[in-house]
Design a protein around this nucleic acid. Structure first.
Length: 433
RNA sequence: GCUGGGUUCGCCUAGUGGUAGGGCGGCAGCCUGCUAAGCUGUUUGGCUAGAAAUGGCCUUCGCGAGUUCGAUUCUCGCACCCAGCGCCA
């Protein structure tokens, strides 16, 4: 549950973090509102205590067969009126309070460098030897092999959709199965989640702003369409933008014993994104699309294990790209680039020889307790009940990874060499020949 | 879509217009002494007093509204779950 108490208890850190992010979040409004509501709450508590006492008196009298006298019933109805008077004014303020709490950005980790992208981001590791190549775009290469058709998909569905065909489809399946096998060996449970979530739960996994420019809405009811502005309409579904969001909601409203943790999941799902803010960027091919398949790693753990599992998640992804033999680098995102609900993020960027640039192929983040507070996911340890820490990292985004493999493995004759680790899954060493 | 049943602490379950009880599990302690058991307490969230130990109060029976001095209980609306029927890959 989200409470103002959390804000009071972490006020210094929150204030510092908001400043670091350059956020316009109205913290002062929240604090003033909290003070006001606190006062009202204390007043209400006293009145309720009085009411409960009076009710007990009446109860005792009735049990002994007596009726309460007029003085008592008069004072009781007086208290009732006072309570009703106070309660009448508070819902609007409380709703505002909830809005403020829900929309508060996460507290940035100490290690996040201050700055704005792209200059503020820091390269923290490099692997492999990037070598630029003069080659056609992936769309041309795959188009010639009759494995990719974005034109027909553009006609039937729209821009940024695609038909993948032939061995390219099998290559994707090989890639996904290879990654899933690697993660399973490392103790991750494969999960095929629902591809849609109720807003009530989705808003606990990702900030509300996501709904406008990133998510597709489905299953709108008549009531929902009439009451678009009302927060409490729950009967709407949103297509997931990533399995992370489904995996975060999977354990909503649960309490674990400390011994049960951690939970390690490998979620596999299509991802649906509106890409509203990306006009003109990566418009060719399947590098940036509205629908793509992805395996996502997700961990629920105790506070003290956060760093350990962050490193583990990152290590898994590094292992995958090392085995695929693609040069990559790790980039620590700066304060201006770190997502609203994350405490810190390290991007993995793979080298694209054709584009002659490193491109983002995944994001490893800690959400701290941002998600678990909103989704009520806790664990008991000793006498205390604590919020679970949630971490997530891309394992492999299939379409983007295929672009990367095509650029790295394309041959002069137009065929594509299958990476060694995928050969057992693919059943051949070259496709398109 | 229709009809019926349900939603109570981490899990299971009782209950009633008047302080929400029991079991299991967890945690803390005691006793004991050996591969386990027994006993006691505790187990929604928050406000408040105190240096602390520890108190006091409010809140909590899916959500919202109503009736009432008082609602977990009665009434109305909503959500979700389950079963059956219908439809269906």
């Amino acid at each position: 549950m989200l409470t103002a108490k959390y804000v009071r208890d972490n006020l210094d850190a929150i204030r510092k973090s908001l400043q670091k992010r350059g956020s316009k979040y109205p913290l002062n409004e929240l604090l003033q509102l909290d003070e006001k509501l606190g006062k009202v709450n204390r007043e209400l508590q006293e009145l309720r205590a009085e009411r409960n006492k009076g009710s007990q008196q009446i109860n005792m009298l009735k049990k002994t067969g007596k009726e309460p006298d007029k003085a008592l019933t008069d004072s009781m109805s007086g208290i009732k009126k006072k309570i009703e008077g106070i309660e009448k004014d508070t819902p609007v303020q409380e709703a505002r309070m909830q809005t403020l709490l829900w929309s508060m950005p996460n507290i940035l980790d100490e290690s996040v460098p201050v700055g704005e992208p792209p200059d503020g981001n820091k390269v923290i590791k490099k692997w492999g030897n990037p070598a630029p190549k003069n080659i056609p775009t992936h769309e041309e290469i795959l188009g010639k092999l009759n494995m990719l058709d974005v034109e027909r998909a553009g006609k039937t569905t729209g821009a940024r959709f695609y038909f993948m065909k032939g061995d390219l489809v099998l290559l994707e399946m090989s890639l996904l199965r290879y990654v899933m096998d690697l993660l399973t060996k490392r103790g991750y449970t494969p999960v095929l989640p629902p591809f849609m979530l109720k807003k009530k739960y989705y808003r606990g996994a990702a900030p509300l702003a996501t709904f406008e420019d990133a998510l597709y809405r489905v299953g709108e009811t008549e009531e929902a369409s009439k009451l678009k502005d009302v927060e409490h309409v729950e009967d709407e579904l949103f297509l997931i933008g990533t399995a992370e969001h489904a995996l975060a909601t999977m354990h909503a409203e649960e309490v674990f014993s400390a011994n049960d943790l951690p939970f390690k999941y490998a979620g596999i799902s299509p991802c649906f994104r509106r890409e509203a803010g990306a006009h003109g960027k990566d418009t060719k091919g399947i590098f940036r699309v509205h629908q793509f398949d992805k395996i996502e790693q997700f961990i629920y753990c105790k506070k003290e294990d956060e760093q350990k599992y962050f490193d583990e998640l990152l290590g898994n992804t590094e292992k995958i790209w090392q085995e695929l033999n693609v040069p990559y680098r790790l980039v620590m995102l700066c304060s201006g680039d770190t997502g609203h609900q994350m405490t810190k993020t390290v991007d993995i960027e793979c080298y694209m020889p054709g584009q002659k640039a490193y491109r983002e192929l995944g994001s490893c983040s800690s959400a701290g307790i941002w998600q678990s507070m909103r989704l009520d996911i806790r664990y008991d340890e000793k006498q205390e009940r604590k919020y679970v820490y949630t971490l997530n990292n891309t394992a492999v985004p299939a379409q983007r990874a295929l672009v990367c493999i095509v650029e790295n493995y394309t041959n002069p004759d137009g065929s594509i060499t299958v990476p060694d680790v995928l050969v057992p899954y693919m059943g051949k060493k070259v496709i398109g020949r």
